[in-house]
Design a binder for these strands. Structure first.
Lengths: 332, 332
DNA sequence: CTGTTAGCGCATTCAC
DNA sequence: GTGAATGCGCTAACAG
């Protein structure tokens, strides 16, 4: 039913090859015939079939994205970065959310590969051997974003979570704090959970502040878990004087818990979050945090992927973007 | 290089057709040969080429999504709804952000159609004649989500923005307010801008409250614009006693502006937002708002689209989901 | 500068 | 229950 390249060829009195050339901007076409073809394309309303093109050329100009959850503000911003660069290089993206379920991640990767994406951007909590196995079956490049492959087999772009957390805690230590609490992410998350927690411990250790388990609570990055964790801290005989939360949502929740207990931020307890998502500058007091360049993580990862897809020379397979301590009103 | 259906056929001593049958779960295959084929698929690591399948079957099991901005919390949640249902029906989604630029919207729709999506979900501020023109060239179903086609040519799922705004303002009127301010969206947005504004005016009119232009400011749904607008209201001789904002972000900003001026919410000024995005329950005071079922808008639209794609019977082409007044702490 | 010819990898008749 | 043949719409040599 729809008009094909063959119809255009017949109607313009040229061959398919010529039509293909004008459609693809090949310069080897006489201006007059180009014009003629363009006119009948317009007249017939011809729309090239990208699927057929993909089969013939073995390129789909589509990349696959696996992400934990698009409704999470952090990842939404990363995806925005990905999209902008993808669009710039004329790629479309197939987006899929995994909820960090390994089974689903593997299945999504497989589906994306079946769809013949030209490249894959993977975001997840962890890169396991199962991931590696399936990555290896791919004939197209794979780049990890906001995560890392411990085996160093696949390129990645991320920040240094350990150092970022350490910097955050050090800032508290410099400020004279010794009772510093932390709300971590799940310790099963190697980077956003464990690495940040280790950064916390390392900072304490270097300052000769004994590690105290009562100042540690595990959250899930979301608001509710921050509320609960902070209330636990608040019921301690020796309340912490500073709190580092592994996510902004948990930090904001902690501030509310503190305020609800009649204490003040930052006067009584200083609070610092992690990520610098939009909400951190939409609350009072404005949230101090450790900023991750979310948009850039996405943008750089996508640009990185295009380099791999085009087989451009690549200097470093593991790019670490800079984090930044942002001091607003929840710290002194 | 990669293994094809032909390789599997040869290795298992059957024809391509048979392999195709087992891959597609066609029951007309003897169990023993099915087993044999499955084994060589496993052994060879065969991965069906969805592009080839798409060309042959004229179905890609992917749908196109055009959205203003994925980093916007409202749309991120809508997309999450879309994705969950898409995934349930084994569709993938190609996501693209338009920033509400009509030119880009049209171009994206065209690209998506070229990619042979089986259906299209469109979200945008407005459906113009240009949109209609290109929609009509589509051979696959198109569903509008969180927007509406005034010409009623294309199915949609949305809420009743006019009524929702009217309800919100009526609640203030019931509460005894007469100086009710509004921060609208751009009036060039027919639904989220104009309709909500008209709902505001209608409520006033029915209550015989004269419309007063000084109580109207136009924002862009984002925090900063809410701050500015509210500061304007606060400098009025007759300050408003209630504020209705066309987005939660602007409402939260307004609360901060009010607080920064030494007034209290809701004691001095009541505030209600619109959308019920996550931030509304992550601020103090908790934000009262008009809830839109974001997730459901996405989910219902996607389900709706599957019905169109499968040519299932459809009773109503224009589904209106219910909004809801949520009263938290920013209203009395 | 242009046309001819082969596939790309698969689903889908239609026979058997 | 299975195989052979055809074509989906296009790109990519290769000729000329």
């Amino acid at each position: 039913m729809p008009v094909t390249i063959y119809d255009v060829a017949r109607e313009s009195g040229v061959s398919m090859a010529t039509v293909s050339r004008v459609v693809n901007g090949n310069p080897n076409v006489k201006p007059s015939t180009r014009k003629k073809v363009l006119e009948t394309i317009e007249r017939l309303g011809y729309r090239p079939n990208a699927v057929a093109r993909g089969l013939a050329s073995k390129k789909t100009t589509t990349v696959g994205i696996v992400i934990p959850d698009i409704s999470n503000a952090f990842f939404a911003e990363v995806v925005r970065g990905i999209e902008d660069i993808a669009s710039m290089y004329h790629y479309n993206i197939i987006l899929s959310s995994s909820d960090k379920k390994v089974e689903k991640e593997l299945s999504l990767i497989n589906t994306l590969l079946e769809k013949q994406v030209d490249g894959l951007l993977f975001m997840g909590a962890e890169v396991t051997n199962d991931h590696l196995e399936i990555f290896k079956t791919s004939t197209v490049p794979i780049v990890l974003a906001a995560t890392k492959d411990p085996s160093k087999m696949f390129p990645s772009v991320d920040i240094d979570h350990f150092q970022a957390a350490k910097d955050a805690v050090n800032a508290f230590i410099q400020g004279g704090h010794r009772k510093i609490a932390i709300i971590t992410g799940p310790l099963t998350d190697p980077l956003t959970g464990l690495d940040r927690f280790n950064g916390y411990k390392a900072a304490l250790e270097e300052a000769n502040i004994p590690f105290d388990e009562q100042y540690v609570r595990v959250g899930d990055y979301h608001y509710e878990s921050g509320l609960e964790a902070m209330n636990d801290f608040l019921s301690l005989a020796e309340k912490p004087t500073a709190l580092f939360a592994a996510s902004d949502e948990m930090a904001v929740a902690a501030i509310h818990a503190i305020q609800d207990n009649g204490l003040q931020v930052p006067q009584d307890i200083e609070v610092r979050g992690f990520d610098n998502i939009p909400i951190s500058s939409m609350v009072r007091p404005l949230l101090s945090t450790v900023a991750q360049p979310q948009y850039d993580i996405g943008a750089v990862a996508m640009r990185f992927l295009t380099k791999h897809m085009n087989e451009e020379p690549i200097t470093d397979q593991f790019v670490i973007l800079q984090h930044q301590l942002i001091n607003r009103q929840s710290t002194k």
